[in-house]
Design a protein around this nucleic acid. Structure first.
Lengths: 332, 332
DNA sequence: AATGTTTGCACAATCGATTGAGCAAGGTGC
DNA sequence: GCACCTTGCTCAATCGATTGTGCAAACATT
């Protein structure tokens, strides 16, 4: 059975079944009724395949077929629940629709993003989803040249349809919540600080708009130095705050759970006044709720985003428009 | 250039370069010097390939070659930092070694684990790594029949080499720490409760051994009802505790960050006595440090595990032994 | 000039599965 | 008994790249 290490092929099975390779192939890929193979032979072949531990060579099969059913996705990181859930749900949904998902993690590195995209196209993906990509348009252009559908998730692009969260509204609502809680809990009116992210990034820019508008609604001005979108790491957030010793009450809008790690570190190291600080975070983490001072988190609706995304997969001639998915704000 | 949607092949390039497909192939895969193709032709072909946006068809290439350089990994979930880091680091290390990583997430579903493993073998992976798999031996047997190397990570198996954390020592040390802190912070001696995981799971069993031995060292008996390894979800942990209203001081050994979510929820909902509770968790989360009552977390040494793992990849005739990697205990 | 060597490439088989076309045997209708 | 259909398969081309073999031309050697 497994005497020799080589994989069984349909030719091996054909010999054993005393049938032709094409008959074996059609039995194994389920087209045997269409091809008028007798039930008797089909069962014989299937039994032999089972006994021999036959496994389809996907490379050979895909080479010949026109549809691959492979859907590719690139993701920046697995270091937060948001991208983790995206990857997990994407795989589950793809499988439930009979597709084969391939997800690869590109570390927020633009070159790696592009290289990985090329590799996935080489694997004949039918659709390539760029999640949170630095330069989605470069990937979209490459896909277009190769005749592969491109879609953007989380961060939008001009050259492919995009499905993203409504960052503006989510941030505006979160800002309003933090301001309200600052007033009710601390008797303090604002303005808040904005920590984390990068202004060149579409989502951070949209969130900052929401942040500013929520202040405007209350007639509040935000001084420039309150905006500290200095990057995506915990350390960057910590660096932004490390010399800040609040006189009295303070509120902070935290732009990601990674930034939150830095903020909480700063908060926990303050010698005094920690009870006079309120913050909220864009993106959710199950432990966030238990962090002292945290008044709420924005949960992006991953399921809904992916549902919309999967409706686009396989559709020809789509407009390159951006679909906004509302977020859920959880108050603590 | 990209007028028609079809992908360019080496045959298209051959026509444009007025050369043979085999010459084009060897230029593009770097064997042209070995095959005595002139530098002049090589440069011409490379330029044309660039202009035409040529991309290798991996299926065709792999079908013909003997080595695929693909390494596959199955992972249960992306909902915690541990598996997230494993996936991310695995991909990064594989790439740095010139391999192509394919990671797929199997939701702790034994059937899906096996199906995904078969699919990856169908994609001609050279090595398949089962991470935290429910039934690694079934996968190993399948791999063996197909002549594919199998390795286990995080959870051991009998039929393939395994690289796992030293769960026993990690748990023993964590238990000792919690007991020590219960004594110093609360003046209480134990015994602790053990929450989360499943006793049928090797790692939980090993951790429970460590937990028991740490108690034994101090001459402490642990009553059976203190062991509540009732599953891997936050809800299961919460269910274990929800009717528990501690009289006075209490300490808890939490068996995973997912279980910790449930424990913290219970803790935060107690009406009184929360300051008399200490706990520690096997596995690390960056927010764990800031949770009130948390005295320490065990960090599994993902980097070291993967380094050992990568040394095994490609080695023939390995013993099916288990390599234990020490954990790092962080005290808060 | 005859022979040997090197250079530079092309030819054709091959990997394993898929699929349109075709064909022999058996059955049906008149 | 002949024409026609159905059944149940087989044949052979094909997908795109790789690779062992072969061969003509250029060059070198004696």
């Amino acid at each position: 059975m497994d005497k020799d290490k080589k994989k069984k092929t349909i030719y091996d099975l054909a010999v054993l079944a005393e049938a032709s390779p094409s008959a074996v192939s059609s039995v194994l890929n389920g087209t045997w009724e269409k091809r008028r193979i007798s039930k008797k032979l089909a069962e014989k072949v299937m039994k032999i395949a089972e006994n021999q531990g036959y496994n389809l060579n996907a490379q050979a099969s895909l080479l010949r077929r026109d549809k691959s059913n492979i859907v590719g996705m690139i993701v920046p990181k697995y270091d937060n629940r948001y991208f983790g859930e995206i990857a997990e749900q994407f795989e589950a949904m793809a499988r439930s629709k009979g597709m084969f998902p391939v997800v690869t993690c590109t570390q927020r590195d633009p070159e790696l993003e592009f290289e990985a995209a090329k590799e996935l196209v080489g694997y004949q993906v039918e659709c390539l989803i760029s999640t949170g990509a630095t330069d989605p348009d470069r990937i979209a252009a490459f896909c277009k040249a190769a005749g592969v559908q491109a879609l953007n998730l989380d961060l939008p692009g001009k050259d492919a349809p995009s499905v993203i969260s409504d960052n503006y509204a989510g941030a505006r609502d979160l800002t309003s919540l933090i301001l309200r809680r600052c007033r009710s809990d601390l008797g303090w009116e604002g303005p808040l600080r904005f920590i984390g992210g990068r202004l060149s990034d579409h989502n951070t820019a949209a969130r900052l708009d929401g942040f500013m508008d929520a202040h405007k609604e209350l007639g509040l001005k935000v001084p420039n130095e309150n905006i500290q979108a200095s990057g995506y790491s915990a350390k960057a957030a910590w660096d932004s705050l490390k010399d800040f010793r609040p006189f009295g009450p303070t509120g902070i809008f935290v732009n990601s759970t990674i930034s939150l790690e830095g903020v909480v570190r700063w908060h926990s190291q303050l010698s005094e006044g920690t009870e006079n600080i309120r913050f909220g975070c864009f993106d959710r983490d199950p432990f966030g709720k238990f962090l002292p001072g945290n008044v709420g988190m924005v949960e992006q609706d991953v399921l809904q985003m992916l549902e919309v995304l999967f409706e686009l997969i396989g559709q020809p001639n789509l407009e390159n428009k951006v679909t906004l998915i509302p977020c859920n704000l959880e108050e603590f």
